[in-house]
Simulated assay, not measured.
Amino acid sequence: MPVIHAADAEVHAMHNATFTSYVRPSTGSKEICLWRLEVEPGTVGQGHRVLREEVFLMLSGTAELTVDDETTTLVAGDAAVVPAGSVLRVDNPSTTPAAFAVVVPVGFSAELADGTPITPRWVS
């Protein structure tokens, strides 16, 4: 049974956010990826199109998820499903950090606003 201890998780930082990668193919998963996303206070996120479904579980704080043109505020305990093909942006207009657990299928990828394809390092 693969176990990923917190001390062994890979941490990546970009766009005023920290991605702590736990579950992915390189740690033993064949079907799903799981990471912790922490978004700094006052952050306006980078819009991007997700090419596979993405699920968010709000762990602490509050944040705004914009999917296509619909914005929803999430608080601890709330969950959201972002359908494949949607344009997603995660904002934290509050004064405290926002933390999520994020789950995607293996093979997850996205596109930046200019169409540039991206495969995040924390899903391989």
Rank of each mutant, 00 (worst) to 15 (best):
P120D: 00
T96N: 09
S29V: 00
F56Q: 05
E31N: 08
D68Q: 04
A110M: 10
G61I: 13
A99G: 12
F56V: 07
S109W: 07
S109G: 09
G107E: 04
R24Y: 04
A17T: 15
V39T: 08
V102N: 05
L59Q: 14
P41G: 05
G61L: 06
V44S: 13
S124M: 10
E70K: 12
S21F: 07
V55T: 14
I32A: 10
G115R: 03
T119Q: 03
W35E: 06
E40V: 14
H5K: 15
P25G: 04
A7G: 09
V3T: 15
P117G: 00
V55K: 12
D69Q: 04
P117F: 01
E64M: 11
G28W: 06
D68W: 00
S60Q: 08
E31M: 12
K30W: 06
L65W: 04
G107S: 04
A98C: 05
L65T: 06
A99C: 15
T66Q: 14
S86C: 03
T62C: 11
Q46K: 12
R121P: 13
H12C: 13
V81G: 15
E38M: 07
T66V: 07
P105C: 03
G42I: 02
M1Y: 14
V82D: 02
A6G: 09
A80I: 06
F56G: 09
L57W: 09
A7N: 08
D68Y: 01
T116A: 01
A9Y: 13
A63Y: 08
G61S: 14
A101K: 06
D78V: 00
C33H: 01
E64W: 14
K30C: 10
A79L: 06
M1P: 09
V106P: 06
T20H: 12
G28H: 03
L112G: 03
R36P: 06
P25I: 05
R121Y: 07
S60K: 06
V11M: 11
P97I: 07
V11L: 15
